[in-house]
């Protein structure tokens, strides 16, 4: 009886582990794209995300705020100073006592150092600057920050990822861990790795942030989406980066 119970427990444990994607089985959304969409992303002259990268390059050098400082005045050349930044964000900010993502870091820089108004979420300026900074990590592996202060937040993100939500009563994990590769209506369900954000989505006909994508999914399961910049959203971003550790940054990615 006891051994039968033990066997049942072991079986449950196997199922629970099987739900997580093994590191060698992880695949970027790029692998699920059509050949045309992949070609669009891979050709820097056809990738529409590069329009925002070039816009961001201009903003990097533009002085802003009452401090009249540009990003370049402090960080000099983005090619060296911002290399790898997107691969390790969100990071723990001791001043605010919680993790901040790349967009929030840019806005913190604006308010604290440039003494300028923060950019609105999903504004063209914020997207352009974020994608320009993130593009400097193109080709680098995701190596999220190992600051122990982040642990409770990534654990929270893990819990949110596995929590059923909305009228459809679905968790992120039920699609992206258990049913990736299958179809939801006409679209392939990807594994949900944040390797290419901000991403150019053909559906949006525009660039958008990871938070916009998360809100999009939440609306899809008929849950109330997190507000832009909500702690839950950042915790989820943090968990997703941890889940995608070692995968290659491909910003700006193109997705259907």
């Amino acid at each position: 009886m006891r051994s039968l119970f033990g066997a049942a427990l072991a079986l449950v444990a196997t199922i629970a582990i099987a739900a997580e994607i093994a590191p060698e089985a992880r695949r970027s959304g790029h692998d699920f794209d059509s050949p045309e969409t992949r070609a669009m992303q891979d050709d820097g002259t056809a990738n529409p995300g590069m329009l925002w990268v070039s816009e961001g390059e201009g903003l990097w050098a533009k002085k802003a705020g009452t401090a009249a400082l540009s990003c370049r005045d402090c960080h000099s050349d983005a090619q060296t100073s911002m290399k790898g930044a997107a691969a390790r964000y969100p990071v723990f900010d001791t001043a605010v006592g919680r993790p901040v993502d790349l967009e929030q870091r840019i806005n913190l820089c604006r308010t604290e150092h440039q003494r300028a108004e923060p950019f609105a979420w999903e504004s063209e300026d914020l997207l352009a600057l974020t994608v320009f900074v993130a593009h400097q990590s193109h080709g680098l592996p995701i190596a999220e920050d190992d600051n122990p202060e982040l642990k409770p937040f990534s654990a929270w993100g893990d819990e949110l990822f596995h929590r059923r939500e909305g009228q459809f009563n679905l968790s992120c994990s039920q699609c992206h861990d258990d049913n990736w590769g299958k179809r939801l209506a006409g679209s392939v369900i990807p594994q949900g790795h944040p390797t290419g954000y901000p991403v150019y989505r053909l559906e949006w006909q525009s660039l958008g942030s990871l938070q916009r994508r998360l809100r999009n999914c939440m609306t899809g399961v008929r849950a109330a989406p997190y507000d832009y910049g909500a702690s839950e959203a950042v915790a989820l971003e943090l968990y997703l980066m941890e889940r995608a550790r070692g995968m290659t940054i491909e910003t700006p990615a193109v997705r259907p």
Binding site: T45, A46, P48, M50, L51, E55, Q205
Partner: peptide, 9 residues
Amino acid sequence: IKTLLQHPM
């Protein structure tokens, strides 16, 4: 020659 223009259309 490849051209890409930012326009909302």
